[in-house]
Design a protein around this nucleic acid. Structure first.
Length: 375
RNA sequence: GCGGUAUUGGUGAAGUGAUUAACACGCCAGAUUGUGGCUCUGGUAUGCGUGGGUUUGAUUCCCACAUACCGCC
């Protein structure tokens, strides 16, 4: 399915752009951050809370839903949206590629697919590109991903070359079996830190004419310099009129840098994971609410934030909840962190409008890290 | 009043006549990037009830005192 992506405004200074795409859930505006709901739920949050944090697209994971409860059960429920009662926007499913590679022994990555062990009971499982797409067809998300290999970092040039070529063959195999016309299918660019491989991967993937393009294999341990180059090496060879999705990146500064390099959408577990571990993003940096200095701090996480947590609760209370292991603490921080990133994307958008995103970046960086941008 | 037992960090406790007093919890701090994770990694008693004594050396042995608990009158 075509997402009818349109670029509304382009920066004259960077590759940043404002755009929108369309699904039956309406218009989705980019640049956008998508929270992750691996097991058909954004951990600790209900759909109303997601909407209150201005989430639009949410992610779910093919691997997890395949092993439990199984794609047939989700299909019987009427698809992911009905199963999880999410009406706030589109759902995107990851192919399972990333999970499989964290569970598989590298030598069990074969041409036909990947052999690995279940994280639940250790049983032997096999996932192929065709199977991944078929599962995603049944799960019924609006946007689905090709089954790719997410190579480790660092990987040798030889390894990476073989890997991207296999990922290209897998993309083709997946596309051939894709049978749900209501779903947009994305291809995934790989190639690690090697420009020529990113280029080859991008060009060959684009030739297959997907509904959008993902940039994968990033944020796997490389430095930020390398990450930004990987993004550039990829977006450079991707078409203007298709959505570009940088997978797994969610550090606030990386979102800005990504947009400046032409990325439209991002996802990341970080805002919800760090929330569950007691951390909150603020414009003045990340803070750990478990720290004793917040014991008597009766101010909100951020005084100018419009999220439910900031409008109703204090740091001292949230700290108390976290220390007492009350789940509301994790929930309030999750709401705040998601809203922090969706608000960041709104600010990025307005600075593309005024075409001064670099200044915004510098200012944000200075406040968040309490230092000047290096370079 | 007499007898017995006990007294180790914020808590529950282990332990030995002698290099850094175990472990757990708590507390303090850090990590976390297509979620195998309410997870992981660090730090946390200049001190073993108080005062004496024995000894080369005592938290560990002895004495007194204090406190607590349990018996008995």
């Amino acid at each position: 399915m075509d997402l009818n992506f349109k670029v509304i405004k382009k920066s004259n200074k960077t590759m940043a752009r404002i755009g929108e795409f369309h699904t039956k859930w309406g218009v989705s505006k980019t640049p956008m951050f998508m929270p992750v709901g691996t097991q058909a739920t954004v951990k600790t949050l209900n759909p109303e809370e997601l909407e209150s944090a201005k989430a639009n697209v949410v992610l779910a994971n093919t691997y997890h839903l395949w092993v439990r409860p199984g794609e047939d059960i989700v299909a019987s429920a009427g698809g992911l949206h009905k199963f999880m009662n999410y009406k706030g926007g589109p759902i995107l499913t990851d192919s399972g590629g990333f999970q499989v590679f964290s569970l598989a022994d590298p030598k069990n990555i074969k041409e036909e697919g990947v052999y690995f062990k279940s994280n639940i009971d250790g049983s032997n499982l096999f996932l192929s590109p065709e199977e991944s797409i078929k599962i995603q067809n049944k799960l019924g998300a609006d946007i689905i991903m090709s089954f790719d290999e997410c190579p480790p970092y660092p990987a040798t040039y030889e390894y990476m070359k073989n890997s991207i070529e296999r990922t290209l063959r897998w993309a083709k195999r997946g596309k051939e079996v894709h049978s749900n016309p209501n779903q947009a299918l994305f291809g995934i660019v790989q190639g690690g830190e090697y420009e020529d491989l990113r280029k080859e991967s991008a060009i060959e993937t684009v030739k297959m004419n997907f509904d959008g393009y993902s940039i994968g294999g990033t944020a796997v341990g490389e430095t930020k310099d390398v990450l930004y180059k990987e993004i550039e090496y990829s977006t450079k060879y991707l078409p203007e009129d298709k959505v570009r999705y940088l997978m797994g990146v969610g550090d606030p500064i990386d979102l800005i840098e990504g947009v400046m390099r032409g990325v439209d959408i991002f996802d990341c577990v970080a805002p919800t994971r760090i929330a569950r571990h007691g951390n909150a993003h603020t414009r003045n940096g990340k803070i750990n609410l478990r720290n004793s200095k917040y014991k008597e701090d009766f101010t909100p996480l951020e005084s100018n934030c419009d999220c439910y947590a900031c409008k109703n609760f204090t740091k001292a209370y949230i700290r108390h909840l976290l220390i007492s292991e009350e789940v509301l603490g994790q929930r309030l921080l999750s709401i705040h962190n998601i809203r922090f990133l969706t608000k960041l994307m709104e600010d990025i958008t307005s600075h593309i409008e005024t075409d001064d995103l670099e200044e915004f970046r510098n200012d944000f960086y200075k406040k968040y890290y309490n230092k000047e941008v290096v370079k």
